[in-house]
Design a protein around this nucleic acid. Structure first.
Lengths: 338, 338
DNA sequence: TTTATTTGTGCAATCGTTGTCGGGAACGTT
DNA sequence: AACGTTCCCGACAACGATTGCACAAATAAA
């Protein structure tokens, strides 16, 4: 409605806008008395500089964009918490975009956010993204860009990720140490970075215990189809049947749990189950579910810090391009054997 | 980095900026041939109008602010999904702010978002907010403002809420119909709108079945303290002890479930449990938990629609100020008696 | 007294875009 | 031949704020 401008103040005080502007920023070349007058009047009228005018002038918006596949996901909402905490402290606003796990929407959203003039972008790729030309573009233009969680190695920009390899290794090792030998791995599309890292951890743990890797035990499940049930059936039909399930996401862990319960497969007596998830209700499930927990908030914080450094060009001694944060295995009932 | 402006096009084509501007918007007073030239060149140079310049000119930002207590909460993240869906369709961007359940942060955030020039604001109050002067201010200035979920009746602006009364009534009635008579109600701070509405539904259901209301069975639990365990203990120590728990939030429902399980109180044999929550894992809990589910996404959508109407002053026949959307009782194991 | 220097302020350009004028050229009408 | 219309297009101001430059007045130095 209202909105006091520098012009209003100038008119009221019979000064020029430049004088008012300088007075407000405390410039030394303004008469202290004039300064006082301006300051007081501005205070009284509750003057606030128009950020849009500033953005136009300074060619920056003090906003950073965050593109995630879904907000309604524990991992991402926690990561956003971390991002927000840092950003607001540093005077940046956070504009959140969802790609809804769609490549097309991701491309559109990237363009939108850039033409919306965010000062930088944090992105976690959609599960359907295999081509990162839309980001390569930005990279080449030197646009501040940081990847987190689901990253692409084709981009030579900072990446903040959980140590998926280590998390998967520990989970698999735990299963092996408790005597499991036929460990099924239910995972997400094979081209995703987190899929590959987790699979590698899984494989290496198997190798360490001299358990041969069986391709048949690994199943890839897209985000669209909710075909976890049938997939579990297929796995259970194998001979020998799996004696453990290690899943790579919230959705798969829950789907797997539901499927196993429905089929009356005893957990952990018959099969063990470990999820890779940030669900905060894991210990209230039946049975309480062992999980690899990712440091989501910390990932968000680091990513935001790195991005702001890029924006403000404080590239002090260019830190390592990829930051890996340890994941933590939490053992609960679903993988405990007497 | 680069960014083609209308000026660049004008210079390249030896035209004035006004002509280019008009050509791009297809004005009738521009020679079709000139139009074609401009359009093609703009296309080739990938020209995108600078939204900041437009915002300054038009005095609006095409962004709406959303203030919620927490993003990492099923209800709110679903609501944000709904908001986003509508907003993006209508050409608005969504800027999310968290009050972190703090009154002070809410006040600061409201001011920030307004001076950031959002075109309108959607807000769900923090649990500590009892004074709404900061919003009354905006209301009086005619600033587009819509409340959802946690609202204040002191503000005469649109409110989109779930039918908390009805949801609580149905839940309580269900418990009564299955023979429960000592129904404890674990709820959130008493001054919150949703608390009052749910309590009223609870009370009226009791009255309908001629069960006297017992003040002792109602417990209020803030968001900071995680004192659900002790509270459950106190309730269980009553004589006669409660035979059902009806809780008013995600956190309380989970806390209550955890506490009851830890104390080996059989659910639903000894006590029934119903939560008021949007948890999507309710049926994987042990036991699967009956819940009143709120139409979070729909609330978000309606709120966003209403806000955009306000912003664009399409107040066609001023619709009712408060919209109540039915909540749905989902009965699961935790409240089923043979 | 004249010339420098300091002090305090205003003018105008700038950021990218749109809108209000107004004007020149080409045509048609008396 | 004089005037009125269209048709296209450009100059300029504006949105709110910052900033380099100019400039007047006051003071200091010569």
């Amino acid at each position: 409605m209202e909105a006091v401008t520098i012009k209003d103040i100038a008119r009221a005080l019979n000064l020029s806008t430049s004088t008012v502007s300088r007075a407000l920023r405390g410039s030394y070349e303004i008469n202290p008395e004039t300064k006082r007058l301006v300051m007081e009047y501005a205070e009284r009228m509750n003057y606030r500089p128009n950020p849009i005018a500033l953005s136009l002038k300074e060619n920056r918006s003090r906003a950073i964009g965050v593109i995630v596949p879904q907000i309604a996901n524990h991992f991402f909402s926690q990561a956003i918490n971390g991002i927000e905490a840092i950003a607001y402290n540093r005077g940046y606003h956070v504009i959140i975009f969802q790609s809804h796990e769609s490549y097309e929407r991701e491309v559109v959203t990237v363009q939108q956010s850039v033409s919306r003039k965010v000062d930088g972008l944090l992105i976690s790729l959609s599960s359907q993204t295999t081509n990162v030309a839309h980001l390569k573009d930005l990279e080449e233009k030197g646009f501040p860009l940081v990847q987190f969680d689901r990253v692409s190695s084709e981009l030579d920009i900072p990446k903040i990720i959980a140590d998926n390899y280590q998390g998967a290794f520990e989970a698999t090792e735990h299963l092996l140490q408790t005597g499991r030998r036929r460990i099924a791995h239910l995972t997400i599309p094979p081209w995703m970075s987190i899929t590959q890292e987790r699979l590698a951890g899984y494989k290496d743990a198997l190798a360490k215990y001299n358990v041969p890797f069986d391709e048949d035990l690994v199943r890839y499940c897209g985000f669209g189809d909710d075909a976890v049930g049938p997939m579990v059936d297929e796995l259970l039909a194998l001979t020998p049947a799996p004696d453990a399930f290690f899943t790579a996401s919230d959705r798969l862990a829950l789907g797997c749990l539901a499927a196993l319960r429905k089929r009356n497969v005893a957990i952990p007596e018959t099969v063990s189950l470990i999820g890779f998830t940030n669900l905060n209700v894991a210990d209230l499930l039946s049975p309480s579910m062992s999980t690899v927990v990712q440091p989501a908030m910390e990932i968000g914080q680091l990513a935001a810090e790195r991005l702001i450094e890029l924006i403000e060009r404080k590239q002090k001694a260019a830190p390592p391009n990829t930051v890996k944060i340890p994941a933590r295995l939490v053992v609960r009932e679903s993988s405990i054997r007497e």
